[in-house]
């Protein structure tokens, strides 16, 4: 998947969970990604974060620590 598309999808998830009550948006994003993203998509995301995480929402970046 193109990096832009992946970043867009991940950020969309973060955008939703950031609007939800509670302090644990990163947890929820991580849980969602774990439940719905196939391993190679998660690997791509982790690799993108390792390479600087360009374009990613801070909550997505935080969530990858819990993946």
């Amino acid at each position: 998947m193109s990096p832009e598309k992946m970043v867009h999808m991940a950020n969309q998830i973060a955008t939703f969970f950031k609007t939800q009550p509670g302090e644990d948006a990163a947890e929820k994003v991580a849980a969602h990604i774990r439940d719905f993203w196939e391993p190679r998509m998660r690997e791509q995301l982790l690799a993108h974060v390792a390479a600087g995480g360009a374009g990613l929402d801070a909550v997505v970046v935080a969530s990858t620590r819990k993946l």
Binding site: M1, S2, K5, D35, W37, E38, P39
Partner: peptide, 13 residues
Amino acid sequence: AEPGLRIPNMLDA
């Protein structure tokens, strides 16, 4: 135990 690919993800992969 891991979720699989959804249709758009299959095409991307």
